[in-house]
Write a protein that binds this DNA or RNA. Structure first.
Lengths: 149, 149
DNA sequence: TTAATCCTGACTATCCTGATAAGTTATTGT
DNA sequence: ACAATAACTTATCAGGATAGTCAGGATTAA
């Protein structure tokens, strides 16, 4: 499962979009799809996953929609990645895990992989939706001042 | 392209194996395959890639084989990953690169991806075959002292 | 009750990975 | 020269994952 799949990017875009909305007003998946250019039915699947993971909350029926289930400062990119890949991205490929009988060669390679994996998770877990949103606001501001840069 | 594919692990194992051999004596792909439990013909493909990337050198004909093309301290894991994935692992999925028209939302997500990607490359590029080999030697030593640990 | 909305599952196309198979080319020993 | 050896190349294939579509069912507000 690639580190940066379309699915993950769609999820991030959706959450960033939700984070910008006034609280208390549910946003329909259709609005998100249009605003962020995401294929509607595909987005539905993504939102379902985010809901199961407790990242968004949904309200059904007329006037329903989605909203963040917690403050954007408490949603990390790591949470989102985990929601999709069940916590085992970047692990050694399944095919190989069998011969875990393991020479020391294999062992030290796995150790290295673990270190790399940990480094990635640290980064993902230390970045929140709010962080990304702050970046976006800076960009928006810069663009409104010097639009052609 | 997964960060830790079977291909990459096979490559690392092969190179670690080669790095342990006395210099000047070419090692046959068959020997590597047997020693490291790698499917023979598959290993051939991998070695071909490593050769094109200038990581190993080959000698054909009777008594031929493979050897490292440079000292193990000068071969980084990053070099090996690049050899396979043409330098663009961990980049955003192709499907999405089209809408590079790009809202600021997309822009700040890509920025984050770039930061993560850079962090991974720094790690990969700062680890050499020799580093891994040193780890392995420590493990071997520890095991010969306390074999059942 | 009806319309809006979420929700679910099945289905498809396409690509990638891991692997096999078969044949070609180069080098060396006799 | 020629046979043995080993590197090299190309084609092919199965399985799984990704990205996406589609049809319908469940829930709720008006």
């Amino acid at each position: 499962m690639p580190l940066f799949s379309a699915k993950l990017e769609y999820a991030l875009r959706s959450l960033l979009y939700l984070a910008q909305q006034p609280p208390g007003v549910p946003i329909q998946s259709r609005d998100i799809a249009e605003a962020e250019y995401i294929p509607g039915p595909y987005l539905d699947q993504i939102l379902a996953v985010l809901k199961r993971a407790g990242i968004v909350r949904s309200i059904r029926g007329v006037g329903g929609g989605y909203e963040l289930a917690k403050p954007s400062a408490q949603i990390t990119v790591g949470d989102i990645v985990r929601a999709f890949s069940g916590n085992r991205s970047f692990e050694p490929s399944e095919a190989l895990v069998r011969d875990a009988a393991e020479t020391t060669t294999i062992h030290c390679i796995r150790e290295f992989q673990r270190r790399a994996s940990d480094a990635i998770w640290r980064l993902l877990d230390s970045t929140t939706i709010q962080h990304l949103l702050e970046q976006k606001r800076l960009l928006d501001q810069a663009q409104s001042i010097a639009p052609y840069l």
